[in-house]
Amino acid sequence: MQLIACPWCGPREEVEFSYGGQAHVPYPDDPGALSDEEWAHYVFFRANPKGRFAERWKHSAGCRRWFNAIRDTATYRFERVYRLDDPKPVIP
């Protein structure tokens, strides 16, 4: 089974984690000011790249904390895990 390195607990089996989709999608500063289209994009539209993707994960059956990861959606390899308050890492 694939091991995922929780930033707090270290490597654990994939079944302990749950997926949270695209990371770095902030709640709009002024939701009332959004057009219908902008609101739809905030609610329904997420990036879906083939390759590196910045995602949210949660160590549900462990420390129960959220974190972010850069993972390759074609190979499923985790390239980085980082805390929610860290900026998105730049990988060469």
Binding site: M1, Y19, G21, F53, E55, T73, A74
Partner: peptide
């Protein structure tokens, strides 16, 4: 499988 993936394979669990 819960995560996004283009690999034409998934997890055994």
């Amino acid at each position: 499988d819960s995560y996004n993936g283009y690999g034409q394979r998934g997890a055994f669990h």
